[in-house]
Design a protein around this nucleic acid. Structure first.
Length: 271
DNA sequence: AGCCAGGACAAGT
DNA sequence: ACTTGTCATGGC
C-alpha cells in the first residue's frame, strides 16, 4: 500500500529535454496526460510528471530520482548527439524540431512485449491492449494501477488467457516472449554482452519478433542508440530524403536520428 | 463504411 | 533473395 506522501522530486534538466515529445514519439505506451501533467507507469511505480514552464526542471511525484534519471537517460549528453546530427544538412530541420526527444531506458521485457503488440497496429490501440494486459496479469501497485506482468507470469499463461486482452494474432507471440525471457534463453544481460547484430538475431528467435521489433527493443529497452527501427514512416521519409541510407558517421546515434525523423514526419511535415 | 495501422511469417516466385 | 497474401482487431 504505497501511498504517495507527496514527496515531490525536483530534477534540474540538461539541454535537449522535452517531456511531451519524449513520451509522445511512440517509444512508450504506458502514460497519459491529465491535468497538465503526464502520468507515467514504469519501474513498478506510477508517477505524475511535469516539466516547468522554462523547461529547466522536472517535477515528479512518485518513485525515486535514481530510477527516473535512468528512465529518461538524463546522464547521457544529448546536446552532443544533437549537434552531431545537426551537422548533416538534410537532417537539420527535423533535428531542430525534435531536439528535446530522448531515448527512454525502459524495462527489457516490457519493451519486448509492447513492440510485439505494436506490429501492424496503431498507437491508441497499442496503449489500450497494453493497459488491459497489465490489469489482467500485473501486480496492483496502486488504486487501479498495475505493474507490467512479469516474465514468470506470462510464461505460465495459456493462449486462451490472452483472449480478453484483444491483441489478435499477437497472442501467441506474447507467450513466446514470456517463455524466452523466463527460461533465461533471451535476457537483457545476454543481450548486453552481444554485439548489435548478434543481439538482434537472438531477439529474432522469439516468435513475432522481426527486424523492426528487434531494433525497437534494442533501442528503447537496451539503450542501444545504434538501433534504427525501420517502419513505414521512416521508410517513406528515408526514400525521399536519404535514399542511400544514413551516413556512416551517424550510425552510432542512428536511433536518435530516427526519432527526430519520426517526429518530423508525423508532427511537422504533414498531417 | 472502409481503409489501414511504428510487422512478421509462410508460401510462392 | 525478393514479393505477396494473411493474420485479429478497432481507430479514425
Amino acid at each position: 500500500m504505497a501511498k504517495n506522501h507527496d514527496k515531490c522530486i525536483k530534477i534540474s534538466l540538461p539541454e535537449c529535454f522535452d517531456l511531451r515529445d519524449t513520451l509522445e514519439c511512440g517509444q512508450c505506451f504506458r502514460f497519459f496526460e491529465k491535468d497538465g501533467a503526464f502520468t507515467v507507469i514504469a519501474g513498478g511505480c506510477c508517477a505524475q510528471i511535469r516539466q516547468t514552464e522554462d523547461g529547466k526542471t522536472l517535477l515528479i511525484n512518485g518513485g525515486d530520482e535514481k530510477f527516473w534519471r535512468s528512465y529518461f537517460d538524463l546522464d547521457r549528453d544529448y546536446k552532443r548527439i544533437y549537434d552531431v546530427i545537426r551537422k548533416n544538412e538534410i537532417l537539420r530541420e527535423s533535428a531542430d524540431a525534435a531536439k528535446g526527444i530522448r531515448i527512454l531506458r525502459q524495462d527489457f521485457f516490457e519493451t519486448l512485449c509492447c513492440f510485439i503488440f505494436s506490429q501492424n497496429n496503431n498507437i491508441p490501440r497499442i496503449k489500450k491492449i497494453t493497459a488491459r494486459f497489465c490489469e489482467l496479469f500485473g501486480r496492483e501497485i496502486g488504486e487501479g494501477v498495475y505493474d507490467f506482468p512479469t516474465p514468470e507470469r506470462v510464461a505460465g499463461l495459456k493462449i486462451e488467457d490472452l483472449a480478453p486482452v484483444r491483441c489478435g494474432f499477437r497472442d501467441k507471440y506474447i507467450l513466446s516472449a514470456g517463455e524466452a525471457v523466463n527460461s533465461g534463453r533471451v535476457t537483457a544481460e545476454k543481450i548486453e554482452a552481444l554485439d548489435y547484430d548478434s543481439a538482434r538475431e537472438l531477439l529474432k528467435t522469439v516468435k513475432g519478433v522481426g527486424n523492426k521489433v528487434a531494433d525497437c527493443v534494442l533501442l528503447y529497452g537496451c539503450g542501444r542508440l545504434e538501433g534504427f527501427p525501420r517502419d513505414v514512416w521512416i521508410n517513406r521519409i528515408m526514400a525521399e530524403i536519404m535514399p542511400d541510407g544514413l551516413p556512416a558517421e551517424l550510425a552510432p546515434v542512428g536511433g536518435v536520428a530516427q526519432q527526430y525523423l519520426f517526429h518530423y514526419g508525423r508532427n511537422i511535415k504533414n498531417k
